[in-house]
């Protein structure tokens, strides 16, 4: 189910805090290189948490470390491509 951008952004930031234990230092602009705990395993947990929270499924390419939180929120906000 597609969700609106605000909901997706809030969910992504909440999922980030849930997984890493910290608030995203640069909000939706936060990138993996900004956060030491953002490992490949933490990234998978983050994607899983976002999918659970928003009831969406992100495309496979988002399972690789790289996108910012904002990019994850944008993908999730459009239903992740496969709602």
């Amino acid at each position: 189910m597609p969700v609106d951008g605000t909901t997706a952004a809030e969910a992504v930031l909440a999922a980030f805090k849930d997984v890493t234990g910290d608030t995203a230092p640069r909000g939706l602009d936060t990138l993996p290189q900004d956060v030491g705990e953002w490992t490949s395993l933490a990234h998978v947990r983050l994607v899983h948490a976002i999918e659970q929270q928003l009831g969406c499924e992100l495309p496979e390419r988002f399972l690789a470390v790289g996108p910012s939180l904002g990019e994850l929120a944008a993908a999730a906000g459009t239903g992740g491509g496969t709602a």
């Binding site: 490949s40 998978v44 947990r45 399972l63 690789a64």
Partner: peptide
């Protein structure tokens, strides 16, 4: 998860 991570189970 399998193709990206070699993780055989859904989380």
């Amino acid at each position: 998860y399998w193709y990206r991570l070699r993780q055989p189970c859904a989380l």
